[in-house]
Write a protein that binds this DNA or RNA. Structure first.
Lengths: 239, 239
DNA sequence: CGGACTTTTGAAGTAATTCAAGGGGAGTGG
DNA sequence: CCACTCCCCTTGAATTACTTCAAAAGTCCG
């Protein structure tokens, strides 16, 4: 029944949502499947944009690297999300790299195929517009956060976003469902791993979070939301 | 001949590029024209996204404001660019405000009309995808700059981007073709007007720029490019 | 020529980085 | 099962790039 489940998965992705089953069958027929183990690279920054994937199972990380070795995390991608939007929007090369952070199972199309599909199915083009609009807005938000907020707030926002995107209820609180180092959080919040570590330690002290090696559990969502909003009473130099 | 020129203008916009003349005529027929004087507000943050404009003449500024009054500039929009992409991509409200910084002449459509147009003309939907992709990439770039670069570099990048977008050759160098305060540059670079002022003064000292009230002229593009790249020898505490 | 914006510049303050060093945890291989 | 090693994380202390505070000087416009 792999065929059936693939169709169901496609129907639930942000790109193929609402597309007629008949069309999905055609689209599925010209797709290919690919597995990546945790740590494997899907696209490398500046490579030609020759294909597009949707995540079926797993988790990917989109990053950008600067010549001097610094890196920022653009976003994480979970099931149903599109990896390689550049292939849709025409730019010749990938603006960043995409790596698997968990073992992942992707469904892919070549650049030509996906363009062909889009021009034949208006609904898919519309979905692409919605999807790109949402990402653009997400970036505007992050840019604003980075410009106007202090680190503690930014880290709080980053973690809240991650719980919204990949949160898993547990007895101790909401856990971010994939491995995540302090360095990763730093690269998402625009700070250093040291500052992230100090901040998490302070929060742990207050019982707001409960973290371990490559793991973050938010115990007190409300408290974290307050910190993110900047309304939390800031202890002078709490770090 | 206003009708003819409007068609030519539409044909040159990022959204209607490459669309058949017949279709452009229809699109033009359902559009409306609107003038805004410098300082007037086109969209207000959180207003319902009920229309979309393309800039025919003039210059707009897209901003986001935070409750405490701080503001950041998302981008400037010049002739041919789309204001109100949100209306395309389905979100209910505008994520930021758009203001005219010069007297401007816009061509507009209602949300329903533009969606109708898009679904009838695949080429336009494709243009929208290209346009949103480009903006998304621009935002990724700025996010990276803001995370990894120091202020001087960021200000340099901001000014370079502005000259690329709205630069005008003059005898003294490349001038940014619209009024721009130190505060504006600060809101684009993620810093304060004080730091921008100090930085510009230092550059003026070195003959790299030539600025005045609400005006910036880049005399030495190469020098500025070097600073932006971070390869320029940083005088310790040049500010 | 008054008044509202801009811009400049000095001095003080500070949030966060950088530097430095050590302490776990988890897997591996003997 | 223990030792070894590679990461990852933590925490103190020093430093600094930038902001904040403060005040004054231009500059444009009616």
């Amino acid at each position: 029944m792999e065929y059936q489940t693939d169709l169901i998965i496609l129907e639930r992705t942000e790109l193929f949502r609402g597309v007629a089953v008949q069309a999905l069958r055609e689209i599925h027929a010209v797709s290919y499947r690919k597995r990546f183990s945790a740590g494997e690279i899907i696209f490398r920054q500046d490579d030609a944009a020759a294909s597009l994937y949707v995540v079926s199972v797993g988790r990917l990380r989109a990053t950008q690297t600067v010549p001097d070795g610094q890196q920022i995390i653009i976003r994480y991608l979970g099931p149903g999300e599109v990896a390689g939007y550049t292939t849709l929007s025409g730019a010749a090369t990938h603006p960043g790299s995409i790596t698997a952070v968990d073992d992942s199972y992707l469904i892919g199309w070549s650049a030509d195929t996906i363009k062909q599909i889009m021009s034949e199915h208006t609904a898919i083009a519309m979905n692409a517009i919605v999807l790109l609009g949402a990402r653009y807005r997400e970036m505007q938000l992050r840019l604003r956060e980075l410009s106007t907020e202090r680190v503690e707030q930014r880290i709080a926002h980053t973690i809240l976003r991650l719980t919204a995107q990949a949160g898993r209820r547990t007895v101790r609180g909401v856990e971010i469902a994939f491995p995540l180092t302090r360095q990763d959080l730093a690269e998402m919040s625009g700070t250093t791993l040291h500052t992230v570590s100090r901040t998490l330690s302070a929060w742990e002290e207050e019982g707001i979070v409960d973290c371990g090696r490559r793991r973050v559990i938010v115990a007190e969502m409300d408290a974290l939301t307050l910190i993110a909003a900047g309304t939390s009473p800031r202890l002078p130099n709490r770090l």
